[in-house]
C-alpha cells in the first residue's frame, strides 16, 4: 500500500503540497480509501465518514483519552492525529477488537465482569488504552496500570474496575503463555 497521501487537486503537486488528499488505510481489517481535507482528524474521519462511532469525542484536544485508537498496533489519540498521518496504516478501533465470530475480546469481557464502566462513554477509549497497556508490558501491577491509564479520564469514576479488568486480563495472558 502506498504510504504517502496522493494529491487529488492536480494543481499543487509541483510544489509538493496538496490541499486535497487521497488516502488509503486498513481500518479494522477493511481497506478504506477516501479523499481528505488535510485538516480532518482521524477521529472525525472515523465517526462522521466511516460510521465508526464507537470512538468518542470528549475534548478534541488530547486531554481525555476517549478517542484512543491503535495505529499499527500502538495507542494514539485520534483527535490529535491528522487523518493523513494514518495513510497506509492499520487502524484499529473498538469495533475491531472482538473476535471474528463477534465474541468479545477477553478485556471487553473483563470490563463487564468487573463493572469497569458506568455511563460507558469513555469505555471504548479505556479498552483501547488497556489493550495497549497490556501489549506494552505496562500491566504488571496495579500502580503501573493506574499510571499508564491516567490519560483516560472517567468522570463516573469507574477506575477501580478498570484497573481490575486490565490486571486480570494481563494476568490471564501471562498465565497462558
Amino acid at each position: 500500500m502506498d504510504r504517502f497521501p496522493r494529491d487529488t487537486t492536480g494543481s499543487a503537486s509541483r510544489s509538493g503540497f496538496s490541499g486535497r488528499l487521497h488516502v488509503q488505510m486498513v481500518v479494522n481489517g477493511r481497506d478504506v480509501e477516501r479523499d481528505l481535507d488535510p485538516r480532518e482528524s482521524l477521529l472525525d474521519l472515523l465517526r462522521e465518514r466511516l460510521a465508526l462511532t464507537g470512538t468518542k469525542k470528549g475534548c478534541d484536544h488530547g486531554q481525555c483519552g476517549a478517542c484512543t485508537v491503535h495505529i499499527d498496533g500502538r495507542r494514539v489519540l485520534s483527535c490529535l492525529t491528522l487523518a493523513a498521518k494514518a495513510n497506509g496504516a492499520h487502524v484499529t478501533t473498538i469495533e475491531g477488537v472482538a473476535a471474528a465470530d463477534g465474541s468479545p475480546h477477553p478485556l471487553q469481557q473483563a470490563f463487564v465482569d468487573y463493572d469497569a464502566l458506568q455511563c460507558g462513554y469513555c469505555t471504548p477509549g479505556q479498552i483501547m488504552a488497556g489493550l495497549a497497556c497490556i501489549a506494552e508490558g505496562h500491566a504488571t501491577d496495579e500502580a503501573q496500570i493506574r499510571e499508564y491509564l491516567s490519560g483516560n479520564l472517567c468522570r463516573c469514576g469507574a477506575y477501580a474496575g478498570i484497573v481490575a479488568a486490565v490486571r486480570a486480563t494481563a494476568a490471564a495472558q501471562e498465565g497462558g503463555c
Binding site: S15, P38, A84
Partner: peptide, 23 residues
C-alpha cells in the same frame, strides 16, 4: 477552528527542508 492548509509528507530530511522553503 483549523484554517485550511496544504500538506506534504516528504520521506527525506533534505526534502523536508526544501519543502519549507517551497511552501
Amino acid at each position: 477552528t483549523t484554517r485550511p492548509f496544504t500538506y506534504a509528507a516528504p520521506t527525506t530530511i533534505a526534502d523536508a527542508v526544501a519543502l519549507i522553503d517551497t511552501g
